[in-house]
Nucleic acid binder design. Structure first.
Lengths: 148, 148
DNA sequence: GTACGACTTCAAGTCGACTTGAGGTCAAGC
DNA sequence: GCTTGACCTCAAGTCGACTTGAAGTCGTAC
């Protein structure tokens, strides 16, 4: 299998070297040897990095990702836990849809105060039910910034 | 309108007092007065908190939420930015679906190494395209733990 | 054989969203 | 009028996921 040094892995995966070192440090990926001091990886690592990115994108912590897909993608986790996780994701998708609708509503509704708009309140009611029984939280970064 | 002290707000919303104080500090919510030292809020705040929770659940930072829904839910943000954000959410939902499918696959596929399973690789390929052009990252906490 | 540049280590810093802790205050109930 | 318990303030701590910086090490090209 092809061997890549860290710089190449960084470039191809878009993950900076410092992050790759960090991932190795916490055992998420392994370099197979050194060339001088320089870490070298099997090309395989690229796939694993996609997996990691996917997991992060979907809101998992690195330790969760690590547990989800053990050595070469084999999970160390009971199947029903995985399914539970999948169901969580399902729920998160519903939340996203809710917020998306709320946002679209806010973008289009001419009402002066949304808290008084019945449509909006209906959206929030739906939320309420989900939020009181906390199921899953998400945090994101990057992309079409609204803040600052 | 009904007045609640902080303890009651905390209890009804599930948001701890320390967090409520923090939210007030950063201007996300306002207490209308004090009873002694004790903060008091209009019942309205509960709706606003649902909104905040919804935003957080969907992966927004508090400042983003603050900007999305300003005073009493009126947005301070141009409509097309809101729509862009809604589209982001759409994309995030796709990511979630991808991961959900990957997870279900891992739960059900009997193959020894998923990295060699064609179905799985296909899922990852789809990911690759999304991940290289970073659009939105998510992080979550709570609920059906896999890690630790 | 030496300069270069890309790596290396290790410690410390950063950011968001809170929590924790110490020490203080206050309204209500007895 | 005193105790109680829930609040208060303010500073500092925490956690995850990195990044940054200083000081050092190599292989390669010239």
């Amino acid at each position: 299998m092809q061997i890549l040094d860290i710089g190449e892995v960084a470039e191809r995966s878009g993950v900076p070297p410092s992050a790759l070192r960090y991932y190795e440090e916490i055992g998420l990926i392994q370099s197979i040897r050194r060339h001088g001091l320089r870490r070298q990886f099997e090309a395989d690592v690229l796939l694993k990095l996609s997996l990691i990115e996917l997991g992060k994108t979907a809101g998992f912590s690195l330790t969760e990702v690590a547990n989800m897909f053990g050595e070469d993608g084999r999970p160390d986790i009971p199947r029903d836990q995985l399914r539970a996780k999948a169901d969580d994701l399902q729920r998160q998708m519903l939340d996203l849809r809710l917020l998306r609708d709320a946002l679209r509503h806010v973008a289009d509704c001419p009402a002066p105060s949304h808290l008084e708009c019945p449509t909006f309140r209906k959206l929030l009611k739906a939320t309420r039910r989900r939020v009181t029984r906390p199921s899953s939280k998400i945090r994101r970064r990057g992309s079409s910034q609204l803040g600052e």
